[in-house]
């Protein structure tokens, strides 16, 4: 891979404190249960349960991955029809979290 002027290694921005007012997002960081389809090496969350309430995922808007130390976190922006949420899957602990309401 030839690169000029851009280093994918420059990921130090994790040290910069985040403004909690970003686009009116509400940070939750709750552990959740998630029903998931693993297909062709990809992860498709189908529905999740938070505080005994079940949310059916209608659309996966976007997904991306981040490495945090030894752990790889898969993030998903999902829509339940009325609301959108960011949920994440930890490849090491196999745990799901509801990160924030978008």
């Amino acid at each position: 891979m030839h690169q000029s002027g851009f280093s994918p290694k420059a990921r130090w921005d994790m040290h910069i404190p985040e403004d909690s007012d970003s686009a009116g997002e509400e940070f939750l960081n709750q552990r959740i249960d998630c029903l998931v389809l693993f297909k062709s090496g990809k992860i498709y969350p189908q529905r999740f349960t938070c505080h005994n309430k079940e949310y059916e995922i209608k659309t996966i808007n976007y997904n991306w991955q981040e490495r945090r130390g030894q752990e790889v976190i898969n993030f998903f922006s999902v829509s339940t029809g009325t609301d959108a949420y960011q949920i994440s899957f930890n490849n090491t602990s196999f745990g799901w979290r509801l990160d924030k309401v978008l």
Binding site: I16, P17, D19, A23, Y62
Partner: peptide, 23 residues
Amino acid sequence: SIEQAINPRLKGKPLIVGSRGNK
């Protein structure tokens, strides 16, 4: 565009991406 793809509520709206500090 990535932020608008992630958050459907932001689609079609004027949006800026800035530093993680105070907006």
